[in-house]
């Protein structure tokens, strides 16, 4: 029941956030992207995090939705 409530609440909340953010977009010209192009602004995991993501994938029951591996390898230990 609790799981259902979380799912029921989460999806509309994510859609609302998405609509709100996307609707507030402004056009950013290439010469205005100096901050967005900063290496630490990348919408991706940092390379140095690679092995952290591996151990988290092994030590936790969930994985995925982080542009990393979603299968393969065993995590035997």
């Amino acid at each position: 029941m609790r799981r259902r409530n979380i799912k029921n609440g989460l999806v509309p909340a994510m859609i609302a956030v998405a609509v709100l953010l996307v609707s507030s977009c402004t056009t950013v010209k290439e010469y205005q992207k100096n901050k967005l192009n900063d290496a630490e602004m990348a919408l991706a995991n940092r390379k140095v995090e690679k092995t952290e993501l591996s151990f988290q994938g092994y030590r936790e029951g969930s994985s995925g939705a982080n542009a990393g591996k979603s299968g393969g390898g065993c995590g035997c230990n």
Partner: peptide, 8 residues
């Protein structure tokens, strides 16, 4: 999505 000059 780029939202503005500071947010993506």
């Amino acid at each position: 999505q780029i939202i503005n000059q500071n947010l993506q």
